[in-house]
């Protein structure tokens, strides 16, 4: 029997930039993003896929990056919080709405929460309050009671002018 492969070279596109790295087969995607690519805006908050602070978008799907191996992302396109702002560095409508509505306090869950918001609004531009709550139920926040997060998303959901 041959030894299982312990490491593998992968190629990913993160926030539009291509990276090629050799990673250990067991490296979680969240660790890869944080430690290999030094994109520390994606956070690590639990070991069970519940808290959502590591949420990223992989090939258009909302993913908890602690539940996926880096090698599974080979050839894929990943979007993290660092890719949200406009090219000139100004805040995107989601970032702006989170700040304006005081939808963040400590800011630790915020990157994952904003990516969940982006995914939600891309698939359902006019969600009801119930749909918003379902859309972010996989992302835990201990600071806000979710009130202002829901309000921030509602402000985007009711705004025809917004381009995410």
């Amino acid at each position: 029997m041959s030894e299982p492969v312990k490491s593998q070279t992968i190629r990913v596109v993160v926030n539009g930039r291509e990276y090629t790295r050799t990673v250990e087969a067991r490296t979680l995607l969240v660790r890869f993003i944080r430690e290999e690519l030094n994109l520390t805006g994606t956070h690590f908050g639990c070991d069970t896929g519940h808290c959502g602070s590591c949420t990223v978008i992989v090939n258009g799907r909302l993913i908890k990056s602690c539940m996926m191996l880096a090698i599974q992302a080979d050839g894929m396109s990943i979007e993290t919080v660092e890719g949200l702002a406009n090219p000139d560095g100004s805040l995107s409508p989601i970032q702006d709405a989170f700040s304006a509505h005081h939808a963040l306090q400590c800011g630790f869950c915020t990157p994952g929460m904003m990516l969940a918001t982006k995914y939600l609004l891309e698939h359902n531009p006019h969600p009801t309050e119930e749909e918003i709550r379902r859309g972010i139920k996989g992302n835990l926040c201990r600071c806000t009671g979710y009130v202002n997060i829901v309000k921030a998303i509602q402000s985007l959901a009711n705004n025809e002018e917004v381009t995410l």
Binding site: G41, F44, T80, V81, L104
Partner: peptide
Amino acid sequence: DERLVKGQGRFAD
């Protein structure tokens, strides 16, 4: 807010 919504906060880890 600006640094936190940009993922530029610096947390212990």
